[in-house]
């Protein structure tokens, strides 16, 4: 067993009744790496993480935390683990310090070490002035930082974070990621899930998950490179009329997707580009060629797996 891999997930499968939540998920996280699980709600990210933490049993597959089999020796494995569930899971009526102390005690952290680490974590997450404040009175961003501090109090080797930045304001998100980057430099292996595509770029490796299956994986660059289709951006929200005009040209493989106040048109060949341009000029629309983002890749992969399934 390669001990250099701190979190190893092998061929995980899980069914809830008839529906498959996970199909053959495998991944590895080395020290100092951040691996991201990217996918919409219901993709199976939370299930994968819960199994990795020993909170759920898989139907098939294995999980190793620092080389320890989570199913065979759950308590030993959990000593190496820091887990931050998706929901805010601290005690609202306890103060910041009391929450930290509670988790330190659960991990048998000696008092001296606890005080040192608390000091450091508080500075690090800039929660020092709020130590006596009840957790329920903190802002969303501060709550998440406190939750992270609680999972770090026993200096775990592996950190599993389930959508830690969901519902947090952009500034706090940035701050939170800055902390994760520091932890990365300290050699902690991190598995993180996020619905934000911009956060995907901050990971060392990403797995795009949909309906419990990995539909693409690699470094963010690789995932983008594997995507060999081309993109046009049009400033318009009228997807229907563009689709309508294009459908007359019989190009099934061209898709029109809406992004905020603009449209992305996905195509493959120069020939298609000419047709699209002529159609758009009739609609008085001016297209520009753009580089695909992770989000484009994801949405495109989703729609193509969907249509294949259909």
């Amino acid at each position: 067993m390669n001990t250099e891999i701190l979190l190893k997930i092998e061929n995980l499968a899980k069914k809830f009744g008839e529906t498959s939540a996970l199909k053959d998920l495998s991944l590895e996280v080395s020290p100092g790496k951040i691996v991201g699980l990217i996918g919409p709600d219901g993709a199976g990210k939370t299930t994968a993480m819960r199994i990795a933490c020993g909170l759920m049993l898989p139907d098939a597959g294995k999980v190793f935390l620092s080389g320890v089999d989570v199913q065979a020796q759950p308590r030993k494995a959990k000593n190496h683990l820091g887990y931050m569930p998706q929901r805010f899971s601290l005690y609202q009526d306890l103060t910041v310090s009391e929450n930290i102390r509670f988790f330190a005690d659960l991990y048998h952290v000696p008092k001296k070490e606890r005080l040192e680490r608390e000091e450091r974590l508080m500075k690090f997450s800039r929660l020092s002035p709020f130590r006596k404040r009840r957790a329920g009175d903190l802002s969303g961003g501060m709550k998440q930082k406190l939750a992270l501090s609680c999972t770090l109090i026993h200096t775990p080797e592996v950190l599993i974070l389930d959508e830690p930045t969901t519902g947090v304001d952009p500034v706090s998100r940035q701050e939170f990621w800055a902390i994760l980057k520091t932890l990365q430099s300290e050699g902690i292996a991190q598995l993180i899930s996020t619905p934000y595509m911009d956060e995907a770029l901050l990971c060392d490796r990403i797995l795009l998950v949909h309906h419990g299956k990995v539909i693409s994986q690699g470094t963010p660059d690789e995932v983008l490179k594997n995507y060999n289709r081309r993109l046009l951006n049009v400033l318009s929200t009228d997807a229907a009329s563009v689709r309508n005009a294009l459908s007359k040209k019989n190009f099934d493989e061209i898709s029109v997707l809406r992004y905020g106040d603009s449209l992305h048109i996905v195509y493959d060949t120069d020939e298609q580009l000419q047709v699209i341009k002529s159609v758009l000029s009739k609609l008085n629309m001016e297209p520009t060629e753009i580089q695909p983002s992770i989000e484009d890749v994801f949405v495109e992969l989703l729609s193509s797996t969907e249509s294949r399934a259909a």
Binding site: R50, C53, G54, L55, P74, R75, K76, K78, N79, L81, Y83, P85, R87, F88, S89, L90, Y91, F103, L106, Y107, C150
Partner: peptide, 13 residues
């Protein structure tokens, strides 16, 4: 409230 999930993720019996 989900705190049980957090407790169960620790090595507690």
């Amino acid at each position: 409230t989900g705190t049980m999930e957090q407790i169960l993720a620790t090595p507690i019996l």
